[in-house]
Amino acid sequence: MTLTKRLFLGLAASSALATLPISAVAQDWQPTRPVDFTIMAGAGGGADQIARFVQSVVEANDMMNRPLIPTNRGGGSGAEALLHLKDARDPDHTLMVTLNSFYTTPIRQEGLGVDIETFTPITMMGVDPFVLWVHTDSGITTFDEYLAAVREMGGEYVMGGTGSGQEDSIVIAYMSGVYDLDINYIPYDGGGAVARDLAGQQIMATVNNPAEANGFYEAGDFVPLLAFSDERMEAYPDVPTIRELGHDFSYYNQRAIVGAPGMSDEAAAYYREVFGQVYEGEDWQNYLKSESLSPLPMDEAETRAYWSTQVENHRELLSKIDG
């Protein structure tokens, strides 16, 4: 009896292996039910686009034996998603696509009791740099002209962003601090809305990810003035970085996939294999290029170290904003 069962299982396993793509070979663990693919932002934003792109690559290449189910849990600036992962009933089947509210929300809302260092690093898909944009009709073409315009308006210069404590507000707060600028900051509920209102000149400047501004840039509506990346960006070779201007600062949006706290090592290894392949695939590499994301591959230990420095950095940056 035992023999037959074992034989049967063995046969089943070998036939499964035969039909699976090479990726799954040598994996002991496989998902046994659909995988919760939580997105810590609403539908249509950058993180959402990335999650659905990744899902489609996995789907199109048949890389997993169970589907990824993307679910937007953007409430409370990602708090909803963080709690969902923290309290996940089945950590082996719970993943999340992040942005930087991964760092900022637990700091700003300590009552949540979320410690992101307990989360499981899976794959760093890339980091999204920030750029300062103005509308072409403003006539401003350099950062110096921008500074002059802001100072001349004396507090009436209107910039839009995704809200206090969000990524772009951190960048704007830093820039205002070092250049002593007085900016009227209007919060919006998403990067797309911010770009739209810059296009309609409801606001005068924004700090946005290239993905959200590129369409308008290509049409000649937006002018990039300053990049907050470590080096000049390939897409805008003439745009200086704030580092070149003598300020030791850069800021990126993290586009990563993380697992719930308490995910087993076998499951984590499986997902790292799958999303590692997505990362290396042609589709994702083209996406990185077209959306001006920077690659930042890291293994598990590097990611953990990166997280703790990011938490420290954000604590410091936020304390400056919140005063």
Partner: peptide
């Protein structure tokens, strides 16, 4: 390239995936 409703937001995501750049 700006969605006017939640559904078009997802359509927009789809267009990006298909390699199109919605916009002017």
């Amino acid at each position: 390239g700006i969605p006017g409703s939640p559904t078009t937001a997802i359509l927009l995501g789809g267009m990006v995936m298909w390699g199109l750049t919605p916009g002017p």
